[in-house]
Write a protein that binds this DNA or RNA. Structure first.
Lengths: 208, 208
DNA sequence: GTATGTTTCAAACAACTGTTTAGATTTTCG
DNA sequence: CGAAAATCTAAACAGTTGTTTGAAACATAC
């Protein structure tokens, strides 16, 4: 039922899932290759090293993300009227949702991944994204600029990163939060509902 | 110049610093005991295991934090008039600042630590804090309730955790952010300034 | 068919991990 | 003082880590 997937993809899938819920250092190549049902040595053969495998996991998943993001951003960029802050922030929702759905196993793997990457590599990940995905970041921020034209550049920078923190941190820990919420308020929420609750919070903060 | 510190404290200091900037799994007991200038076996002798050492590091630092927090919270609790949201949030600033100062080496170690703990232990840390420090969390939230009396319980819960995420995430990565800001805007900011910039953002989001 | 290049495989590698042991040293206190 | 308890130390333990190796299996093209 799965012999169609290449060894490389099987490794990437297994690694992505395991990195997300155990962490990078806590996941051994043997655990990955066992789950992927491939030989241990194939990681080094196809990717060179564990470090490169980690990078490959990230690149694959960021690539997917910006492809989705592009589709959301384009119509707003082409609109004649300036978008609202809420509209701009909303371009993130659908990419996040659709990537969450087509994960085979458990949900919000990739957000946990992002959370880990930010926490574990003290700034390295921030710089990596600003180097390799600067284009999309700029498109996003320039729409934010249209939405809030009288906000100074440096203020913009800070509030953008405040928002980034809130989103990643919340989604990375969303499983735990959903559990607590379910226990305390008998309220069971979906990822989408969490996002919809998050957006007004962000927008208000951003416009503060 | 440092023979006064007990072995236990030397280990805790070294472990705290190393955990903060490398992570838990990435820091070996040998690295810790080398920096602390103590024998390798003394970690197991004094703490039992590496896991227990990690817990000990957290308990020591959370203990200090809530002691500071208590001093800030008390006068607000005794005030006859309801505090503002900003006032309540401000109770966090001074504890964070003073703990940042009396770290000997580099700054904001403990915030990186918190960030790591949240990211690496998938919800475990969130639950730990809600079990062991529920008292202080409740005092804090009940003041928030006074400040925003017409906010439903579950909404409160979510926005509280949104704010928590923003604070921890921002401060955990503050070194990297300060660097980028310095490079891009020739603006050099202190931790205190970042906090002061963060508070209005949080307050606005909370009141959204 | 043979030859060529790619991919898989089991086994071994050296380095490092947390933990334990048993003996020396120091501290505590009657 | 001197016995008992606490602490420190070097060495070894068993297990795991990422990586390398050389031969086997496979694929592709002539």
């Amino acid at each position: 039922m799965s012999s169609k997937q290449s060894t490389k993809d099987r490794i990437l899938d297994a690694a992505e899932a395991l990195f997300a819920d155990r962490g990078f250092a806590e996941t051994s190549l043997r655990t990955i290759t066992n789950r992927a049902d491939v030989n241990l040595a194939s990681v080094n053969y196809h990717f060179g090293s564990k470090k490169s495998l980690i990078q490959a996991v990230f690149n694959r998943f960021l690539q997917k993300f910006v492809t989705h993001l592009d589709k959301e951003l384009t119509p707003i960029e082409q609109g004649l009227d300036a978008p609202s802050v809420e509209q701009v922030l909303h371009t993130l929702v659908k990419p996040l949702m659709s990537m969450d759905k087509d994960r085979h196993e458990g949900s919000s793997n990739f957000m946990k991944l992002l959370g880990r990457a930010y926490a574990e590599s003290q700034g390295h990940m921030r710089r990596f994204m600003q180097e390799h995905y600067a284009h999309y970041l700029r498109r996003f921020t320039s729409q934010l600029h249209r939405a809030a034209p009288n906000l100074a550049n440096n203020e913009m920078f800070w509030r953008l990163h405040f928002m980034l923190g809130t989103v990643i941190f919340t989604l990375a820990g969303s499983d735990a939060l959903h559990e607590i919420a379910a226990a305390d308020f008998k309220e069971s929420v979906t990822l989408e509902q969490t996002l919809e609750r998050l957006l007004p919070f962000l927008a208000a903060g951003f416009k503060s």
